[in-house]
């Protein structure tokens, strides 16, 4: 494995981390439209909190996908063709969610608004859940042939471990969204988000323990990298403790940063466990390795220069746009 290959493995992880941190609260906020918010003005306010940002947040996913294609096409080809139907459902969810905000704003009847609010809420829910399922199933291992093609059965995608993974990611996103709502709204909405977060954090602890146990039995993470895996799992629990403390002591920033970091921690857990592979095969000989999956040194070198020059510029205006809409949204 060359340094550049290693760097791009990390960069893909960074892009997915950015995606989960940012779209994580978008998904959570999306689900909140039909759960947390109870009046029309509250639903308006909840949508406003992500209004100027959600589209740019989603670009992190598109960039991650593009970067995967540009650095590890064997990974991209195997993953995307192998998880075909899950990705189709994710696309449907992202499409319905993506048009919902603009379409809702043009609706004139309660029924019309209601439809697009459900599209946003269910789209967010399924996107979060299916991404959780996809990545969990991916690290569990798939039937992959020597060419790198997956030909799997239903239970390879949908099993106890992947379902728990899906629920855990959904819950993490939902809580991250509640924490974001606490930061960005006022009044009843802000208080209700706090109230709801409290019991859900105890559920999350239970989910994390269950996930860790299943991780132990379903993957080779603990067998191959016991120390690092353990550290990351403990970090996940500690971050959740911090977020819970932030909820009970009403420290809004602390909860939000902790819930975001716990999503990143999950990405780190997966990437740490994957290394030095990009796809885990049931038959270990067919696992796709970083060293075999990448593009030529020329392209990796080129992409490194481009990414390292454009990313900082992008981050400047990206962060600035959050600064501009720093204010809380009234409902």
């Amino acid at each position: 494995m060359s340094n550049l290959q290693f760097l791009w493995f990390i960069l893909i992880g960074v892009l997915f981390s950015g995606f989960f941190f940012l779209e994580g609260f978008d998904f959570g906020v999306g689900m909140s439209i039909k759960t947390l918010a109870q009046t029309r003005s509250e639903r308006d306010a909840v949508i406003h909190t992500i209004g100027p940002h959600w589209d740019a947040n989603e670009v992190w996913l598109i960039t991650a996908g593009g970067a995967m294609f540009a650095s590890f096409p064997m990974w991209y080809a195997s993953l995307f063709s192998g998880f075909y139907l899950i990705l189709l459902l994710i696309l449907v969810a992202l499409i319905m969610r993506g048009v919902s905000f603009e379409f809702r704003s043009r609706m004139e009847s309660e029924r019309g608004r209601n439809f697009w609010e459900w599209a946003a809420a269910l789209g967010s829910f399924f996107a979060a859940f299916l991404f959780g399922m996809l990545f969990t199933a991916m690290v569990k291992g798939m039937p992959i042939n020597a060419h790198g093609d997956i030909s799997a059965h239903f239970t390879d995608y949908v099993n106890l471990f992947s379902l728990v993974g899906g629920v855990a990611v959904t819950l993490l996103c939902y809580l991250h969204g509640l924490n974001f709502v606490r930061l960005k709204t006022t009044g009843a909405l802000r208080e209700r988000a706090l109230k709801w977060a409290k019991p859900l954090y105890w559920l999350l602890f239970a989910g994390e323990v269950l996930f860790a146990i299943l991780l132990f039995f379903s993957t080779d993470f603990f067998a191959k990298k016991p120390i690092s895996t353990l550290i990351i799992v403990v970090a996940l629990v500690l971050l959740t403790v911090l977020a819970t403390w932030g909820v009970y002591s009403n420290h809004e920033w602390l909860s939000f940063i902790s819930s975001g970091l716990s999503l990143i921690d999950v990405v780190i857990l997966l990437f740490n466990g994957l290394f030095p592979r990009v796809m885990v095969a049931n038959n270990a000989a067919n696992s796709i390795l970083i060293k075999d999956a990448s593009n030529s040194p020329y392209t990796l070198h080129l992409m490194t220069i481009i990414a390292l020059t454009t990313l900082p510029i992008m981050l400047i205006y990206f962060i600035w746009s959050y600064w501009v809409f720093y204010k809380r949204v009234a409902s």
Binding site: G65, G66, A70, P73, M74, Y298, T299, I306, T310
Partner: peptide, 15 residues
């Protein structure tokens, strides 16, 4: 085509 096609796609997203 990954070696050639992926790069402009990723740059399109980044830029």
């Amino acid at each position: 085509m990954g070696d050639i096609f992926g790069a402009p796609l990723a740059i399109e997203a980044l830029v």
